[in-house]
């Protein structure tokens, strides 16, 4: 393993795994307790539209995905605030249209063959230095924003009505949460791909919720679990020559089911 770590790409993969786990632990916790898993899935898939657009315009794909998914997250957020009853339908439509747009735009790029699979299922081993330098400030933005507005996020997650009554700008914070989710998703796409984003975003918080008594501890434990899943998945994929993204998710999924079974036995 140490010998392997000397390879730059593996060192970058480990660093990316840690950085992504931090943002996933924090944002994933808020996504789970606010029950906005579906919207997060929508943002992740629609992000492919941004990747296609970036290729079409000849700008860096991560940048394209970031701008596009932030825009999509705001649209989805406004729709879910305005028309609560049909929000899920609209999100589902944006989800699919975003992806379709990405595929068609990539088709339109002459003679360019994009490695679609690496965006769908991730390529943590291909994370470059410059991408790491992009992840670091994104992590910092997420950590700082949630730290500063921690009690407000907690209040709106627990009891939205009460948060409105005491005068917290609930809608603004909700949109901010979705924008941060979009930024988090863009980072995670590099690691496990946009199809598997949801698993890394929700499994660690789901497990953590059962063993913690506060949102902050849930975030910390989720981050630790995220690092454990990413690194052990990475190691297993290296050992058995498997796809890294899918292996990471299967490790997380195995622990998810294990904790579920332990729960059932404990309550039975």
């Amino acid at each position: 393993m140490w010998e392997a770590l000397q390879f730059d790409f593996l060192r970058n993969a480990v660093l990316a795994g840690v950085l992504v786990s931090i943002s996933c632990g924090i944002i994933g916790t808020l996504v789970v307790v606010n029950r906005i898993v579906f919207i997060s899935g929508g943002i992740a898939h629609a992000a492919y539209g941004g990747i296609g657009l970036a290729f079409y315009l000849g700008v860096p794909p991560t940048f394209g995905a970031a701008v596009f998914s932030v825009a999509v997250s705001i649209v989805m957020g406004l729709v879910s605030l305005k028309s609560k009853h049909r929000a899920d339908t609209v999100i589902g439509v944006l989800w699919a249209v975003g992806m379709a747009l990405g595929v068609v735009l990539v088709d339109l790029v002459p003679g360019y063959n994009v490695d679609l699979m690496s965006y769908l299922f991730g390529s943590i081993l291909a994370v470059s230095d410059s991408e790491l330098w992009l992840m670091l400030p994104l992590d910092a933005v997420i950590v700082l924003t949630v730290a500063i507005f921690y009690k407000e996020f907690m209040a709106l997650s627990y009891d939205e009505d009460f948060a409105v009554v005491v005068g917290i700008p609930v809608k603004t914070l909700y949109l901010a949460l979705l924008v941060m989710t979009a930024l988090c998703v863009v980072m995670v796409i590099r690691v496990v791909g946009l199809i598997l984003v949801i698993a890394l975003l929700t499994i660690p918080p789901y497990i953590s919720e059962k063993y913690t008594r506060s949102i902050s501890r849930m975030m910390v434990l989720s981050t630790i679990l995220g690092v454990a899943f990413t690194l052990s998945g990475l190691w297993l994929s290296y050992l058995f020559d498997l796809s890294s993204g899918a292996t990471i998710i299967l490790v997380a999924g195995a622990v998810f089911f294990l904790s579920y079974v332990i729960d059932l036995l404990g309550n039975g």
Binding site: V33, Y158, D159, G167, R213, M218
Partner: peptide, 19 residues
Amino acid sequence: NNNFPISAMEISLMGRLSR
């Protein structure tokens, strides 16, 4: 939200929030 990881004190503290 009974599964929500929050204590009685944290709920009471919410009353102190304001714009």
